Amino acid sequence: MRNRYRGFTTVNMSGPKTRRVFVLLLLGTALIFSFAGAFAMIQAENSIGSSELSKWTSHISDKTLVMVMGGEIPYLKEHVQASGMEKMVSRLIFELMTSIDFRDPRTFLGRELPMFALFDSEIDVASEDVDYTSIPIESPPPAELEKEILKGLKESESADDPLVQEPAKGGVKTKRVLVYNTHFWESYLPELGKKQPGQASDLNKNVTYLSKHLVKQLEKMGVGAIFTQKQYTWQGSYVKSRKMVQAVMKQHDDIEYLIDIHRDALPRSKTTLVSGQDGKAYARFAFIVGRSSKNFEENLQFARYLHKRINELHPGLSRAVVIKERTNGNNGEYNQSLSPNSILVEVGGVGNHFEETYRSLDILAKVLAEKIHDAVPVSGEPAKP
């Protein structure tokens, strides 16, 4: 209701109609903000993330990026000579369309040579002698071995082949460490009496020996450990080993540490250390951390600790901590989402002996036992040697 008083118009704001208008305005404003917020969230989800943008721009050379940024930052533009501008524009277009940089052979060879793509792995920390030629390499088993595995699986299907578990008899009751081998067929040429790197695979004499040895050593040090094994083929091996690990973890609730032991495909010269302490040969370690794991940061810290502590005890025994993404055939997760204390460790290469790997595993067992004893009291008595 409007009233006039001494030349001024007064409005009664307490009327029912006015109150309804204000309520509607408030509700309308709230709805507008709600829709705007929801739209912004949807756009954020559909937009290119920083990690994706990093991958997209990783193929672009530094000079090309300087040229692009120079459009907004005059200072940078001054450092880009006009004579080379046309070449840089054409190079930018080419790099964006093909992801190829002619000054970096990896950008076009990696697609044609599968093993070459492994050089995209990131070395987090490493010993002084390690470079990208020392990056661990995975190799599939020979076709004949795959056929042998398939034959064995068919024969065991009718018997409902059980999950094989081998806890140490008379050992520590509470099991905190699970040791297994995703690529159980990986072996060592000297142990098989063979010379060709592609022949370093065997269904019986392989890295499962290493897992059993590590379990035995951990038990001696008062750490409950268990080894599990099941045969399967190369294709989808990490999916299959994941199911195996999950089955064991359901039966042993106290398992916190997962150790997946592998054998590197690199030659002996890259994977062997002759100790300055005792003059003996040791199989060198390389720790692999999957960036796609939800526990990436925790597992990375775990790997860094192992690398540092091992090299304090035996300088150079641990080659590196290597980060791998889910790309170019890499799994990038390696079952490490199952525990924040998961690690994939390469023990030696195709040219090492079991004896050399055992020496190294004794040191790994010592470092693991130190960490686990410091983290939580271990129940039970150590197994007798």
Rank of each mutant, 00 (worst) to 15 (best):
D278S: 11
Y334P: 01
P382F: 12
Y305L: 08
R91C: 02
E146Y: 14
K17E: 13
V350P: 00
I255Q: 10
H213F: 10
L113E: 03
D131R: 04
D131H: 00
V215Y: 00
F354C: 04
N328Y: 15
L266F: 07
S241F: 07
G349L: 06
K294S: 14
K212H: 04
P142I: 02
E298V: 08
L31W: 09
S127M: 00
S61T: 05
F116S: 09
M97R: 15
E138I: 11
K384M: 03
P136E: 00
I288Q: 00
E166F: 12
A365K: 01
S134N: 06
E219H: 04
D374M: 06
H314I: 03
E52N: 11
S127V: 00
A303I: 01
Q231Y: 09
Y232V: 08
E146F: 02
H213S: 06
A143T: 09
S342P: 02
S360F: 00
G15T: 12
T9S: 05
N331C: 08
G279K: 11
G28W: 02
R359G: 01
S237V: 04
A44M: 05
L210A: 02
F8D: 03
A117K: 10
A265S: 12
G171L: 01
N330G: 04
L25I: 09
E52S: 13
E95D: 04
L76Y: 09
G332Y: 06
K195V: 07
L178R: 11
L189H: 07
T64G: 13
V345I: 08
G49N: 11
R268K: 12
W185V: 03
P377M: 03
G193C: 05
R19V: 08
R263I: 13
G380E: 01
G349H: 02
A159R: 14
F94D: 15
L300N: 06
S339C: 04
S54A: 10
N46S: 03
A159E: 11
K220S: 14
E297M: 14
K366M: 06
L26Q: 15
S211K: 01
E333M: 00
S54I: 10
A320I: 04
V347L: 14
V164T: 10
L344Y: 09
F302V: 07
D254W: 05
L364W: 01
M13E: 15
G152W: 13
E312L: 03
S237G: 14
F22E: 06
K243F: 07
A44Y: 15
H252S: 06
Q81K: 12
S337E: 13
R291Q: 09
M221L: 15
V245K: 08
S293G: 12
V80G: 02
A369M: 07
P141I: 07
E86W: 11
I372R: 09
I343N: 03
E86N: 14
L313I: 08
Y132H: 06
E312Q: 04
E325V: 07
S61I: 12
K270L: 14
P267T: 01
D264N: 12
V248E: 13
E138Q: 10
F8H: 15
L113F: 10
S275G: 05
D104A: 10
E78C: 05
Q277H: 08
E144V: 11
G70N: 13
I137H: 14
